[in-house]
Design a protein around this nucleic acid. Structure first.
Length: 584
RNA sequence: GCCGCUGUGGCUUAGAGGUAUAGCAUCUGAUUCGUAACCAGAAGGUCGGGGGUUCAAAUCCCUCCAGCGGCUCCA
């Protein structure tokens, strides 16, 4: 596709969708200004999957406005206006925008570098300050839909005025648009908040905003994840500990959390002394390390903790299990010598890879560097950042760099998993920390008999077990593999004549370590199957007179494969036990 | 926190100033049935909380609470 660049040239564009979406944003702004004269424009970029434009309009927009705007946009597309571009001198641009009352655009021009070329794009009566590139004609915007209205601060700063943002999506063809909208529908069906309710996994109540309740079935899923985690960490020579939920404020002053994280911490008074509900497990882990003397021979020392933390997140940011105020980390703190850094990082990266692969996730890695408002010296930060970088390079892992997104005590490697719908979520992280060992003055005795300072890694694999569960629910759409399924088998009797045998079958399965539920209600078999299907139980065993007569067989129905025919109960048990043990 | 929208029995939902809809789930009875919903009946709601307007409020107004979308993508 050819695009119009702001030097006036027409060239093949690199990113067709981006050009279409950016032009769609202009078409939308044009439609809005036609329908609601006096509406001021802020910014309107192309984004992933679509575009938005921020408007300053008295009274904002209501949902019905979207239809009107969409209709006007279709008109503009049909008019097939030609896009033109031209530049203005700085002062002319400011004067022009001022004359039109576009105060936000004026501000944008004022903040542009002195030597910047100030370009405008024009289509019909509509003119917008813009760097382009854009489509040649408005008809390029042929497949679009406005999706939502939202508030957004001018320049993303909450001290500024709240503007009205309209989001839309735009594609190169009607088919792609349809496909995208279908994907959105599918994502909605898989929403973990919806499935969590339907499958009886967890609940969030008004009485505890951001504090999830786990229901019996959710608890099975959660414990199964923890069992798997424990097995791996035992194998990898981690030592599991548990540290208190509430600790004296002095600890948090020393760790630096009080300075850097105070607004997110809950506190409580104990005997007139401020105590903090832990928002992180690290200070506790350090106290455990400090509890005794250590030799270099013990290093690396890997202390793991299934640690529940509480953080005050702003009410508007809460979201199901993805963003909560109480969650449990599969945490570990590794204390080591500087020489051990590369191997330890590599070990964690391999472990993360093993776990994510087990769940069928693809993932990508990001390296986050020093943020503003961080503690420690430049040298330490550089050393730590290079340590992470070289570990990743040595492993040959590809990664993106996220400048300024590190923790306040050190740089980090983040793992972003991609679910079955192609969305990504940050889960695992490895953080290198030179600060806390200093602050707590921890050390080990080296081969030279002298004290040395260990280096510390903070790492999680699931991240938050709660969030990971939410991701798993959406990733599998509630259809968990057998080893994770809260109920693995439902035994369904056809009629009263098979109640007794059904009960025996269920008892045998239970004894074999299978999570089984017996359905001996006086309902038709079709009804029982429907309910088991809706609950997404992997296996259903239909028990009727045929099975009773033989006395050793069951008829198997699979959640995804339907009727599997009749097999020996012992064979079924052996197969499902293997499936569960292999965690496939 | 901020902006916008929403809030009706456990769940999904009708209702837009005049006595609270329906389906699913629940309970009771009947049915004994072979791969996604058998039939009949019953019970269940101070319409998110509080305040106001009105002869009369689920419905209009104020306020608080909660949920949802967004506030990161920078002409």
């Amino acid at each position: 596709m050819k695009a119009l660049y702001n030097d006036g040239s027409v060239n093949e564009c690199e990113d067709e969708l981006k050009v279409i979406r950016h032009t769609a944003a202009h078409v939308m702004a044009q439609a809005v200004q036609r329908l609601y004269p006096g509406t001021k424009l802020a910014i309107g970029p192309a984004i992933e999957d679509g575009f938005y434009y921020d408007f300053d309009k008295e009274g904002g927009f209501v949902p019905e406005d979207l239809e009107k705007i969409e209709a006007e946009m279709k008109k503009i597309v049909k008019e097939n206006l030609k896009l033109e571009t031209y530049t203005m001198s700085r002062q002319d641009a400011i004067d022009y925008l001022k004359s039109k009352g576009e105060i936000y655009k004026v501000q944008l021009v004022v903040e542009l570098p002195q030597d910047a070329s100030i370009s405008f794009y024009k289509q019909g009566e509509f003119v917008d300050l813009c760097a382009g590139p854009h489509a040649l004609y408005t008809k390029a915007v042929k497949a679009f839909k406005l999706t939502s209205i939202a508030g957004a601060y001018w320049r993303g700063d909450e001290k500024n005025k709240m503007l009205s943002r309209i989001y839309g999506t735009a594609w190169e063809s009607k088919e792609s648009l349809e496909k995208y909208l279908t994907m959105l529908e599918e994502a909605k069906k898989r929403d973990h908040r919806k499935l969590g309710k339907e499958l009886g996994l967890f609940a969030i109540m008004e009485e505890g905003q951001g504090f999830p309740f786990y229901l019996p079935k959710g608890m099975i899923l959660r414990n199964t994840l923890i069992d798997y985690w424990r097995e791996l960490h035992t194998r990898e020579n981690y030592h599991e500990i548990s540290t208190p939920m509430i600790l004296d404020q002095q600890l948090w002053l020393r760790s630096g959390h009080w300075d850097h994280y105070k607004e997110n911490m809950y506190t409580t008074m104990i005997d007139d002394q401020i105590h903090c509900i832990k928002p992180m497990n690290c200070p506790g882990g350090i106290l455990v390390y400090k509890n005794e003397n250590h030799s270099y021979k013990e290093l690396p020392l890997r202390l793991a903790e299934i640690g529940t933390v509480h953080r005050h997140e702003r009410s508007g940011t809460l979201h199901g299990l993805f963003r909560v105020r109480c969650f449990t980390q599969d945490d570990a703190h590794i204390f080591m010598t500087p020489e051990q850094i590369p191997d330890e990082i590599a070990g964690v990266v391999r472990l993360v890879d093993e776990v994510y692969t087990k769940f069928g996730f693809n993932y990508h890695i990001e390296l986050s560097t020093r943020p503003e408002n961080s503690m420690g010296s430049d040298e330490d930060w550089e050393l730590a950042t290079n340590g992470l970088r070289s570990a990743l390079d040595k492993l040959g892992k590809e990664y993106a760099v996220n400048e300024g997104d590190g923790a306040f005590y050190g740089p980090k490697i983040d793992f972003h998993v991609e679910d079955s719908l192609g969305r990504t979520w940050q889960c695992g992280t490895i953080q290198l920390d030179f600060q806390l060992p200093q602050r707590f003055d921890i050390n080990y005795i080296g081969a030279d008999g002298e004290k040395h300072r260990p280096i510390m890694i903070h790492r999680v694999i699931y991240g938050s077990i709660d969030r990971f569960m939410g991701i798993l629910i959406e990733h599998f759409g509630g259809k968990f593999p057998t080893w994770l399924a809260p109920v693995q088998v439902r035994v369904l009797s056809v009629s009263e004549k098979s109640f007794d045998y059904a009960e025996q079958v269920a008892a045998k399965l239970k004894a074999a370590g299978v999570r089984v539920k017996l359905d001996n209600r006086g309902e038709k078999i079709g009804y029982k199957i429907r309910e088991a299907q809706l609950q997404k139980v992997p296996y259903m065993l239909v028990i009727g007179e045929n099975e009773v007569q033989d006395g050793t067989v069951v008829t198997v129905r699979k959640r995804d494969g339907g009727d599997q025919g009749t097999v020996k109960l012992d064979d079924f048990i052996a197969d499902i036990q293997k499936e569960i043990a292999d965690r496939v």
